[in-house]
């Protein structure tokens, strides 16, 4: 059952990723990316990370991708045209990506025994559940980094407002 879940949603993620790669129109790429993020949320859930599955749906597909879609619609982005400048990127891009993929897959498959297998759902050490464990760590040991990220978000909001403002 776990393997079926993994195969269905992993295959969906790969297909949507291929669609992102092949589509010319940015809005089609954006919608494929939403599909990738949703299937990744299901995989997070099956790996016992319920909080991250929810956060993936809310933050990534709910906030970031909506922002992307708004910008695509705001700038009225049409189909991209192929130009001569992209030929070098074609020649380097596909072999480079294939080389990265082959290297990583070789390493993972050769270390498959050491990596082991994962059953459905999580069983963390000394934990009640996933969210309890995450919040305990986040609000005790990692309190300072957590507060710093809130300042980072604030700075990012201010920067976005300043950058996107109309100049007089």
């Amino acid at each position: 059952m776990e393997l079926a879940l993994f195969l269905i949603f992993g295959g969906l993620a790969v297909l949507a990723g291929l669609n992102l790669l092949l589509q010319r129109h940015p809005i089609h790429s954006a919608l494929s990316l939403v599909v990738v993020m949703m299937s990744l949320a299901v995989l997070y859930w099956s790996l016992g990370a319920e909080f991250l599955a929810a956060a993936q749906v809310i933050v990534y597909s709910g906030a970031i991708m909506v922002l992307f879609t708004f910008v695509i619609m705001l700038l009225n982005a049409g189909e991209e045209e192929r130009t001569t400048g992209s030929r070098a990127a074609y020649l380097a891009g596909f072999p480079g990506a294939a080389a990265i993929f082959c290297l990583l897959t070789f390493v993972f498959l050769s270390e498959r025994k050491a990596l082991g297998a994962s059953p459905l759902g999580g069983y963390l050490d000394n934990s009640v559940n996933n969210i309890t464990e995450i919040s305990t760590t986040l609000f005790t040991r990692l309190l300072l980094p957590f507060e710093v990220t809130s300042i980072l978000i604030l700075v990012a909001i201010l920067g976005a407002v300043v950058l996107a403002r109309k100049e007089h």
């Binding site: 990723g17 291929l18 790429s29 074609y90 596909f94 480079g96 990506a97």
Partner: peptide, 11 residues
């Protein structure tokens, strides 16, 4: 690797 390829070939 699909992200890398898309990064390089998208215009």
């Amino acid at each position: 690797s699909m992200g890398v390829a898309a990064f390089l070939i998208k215009r």
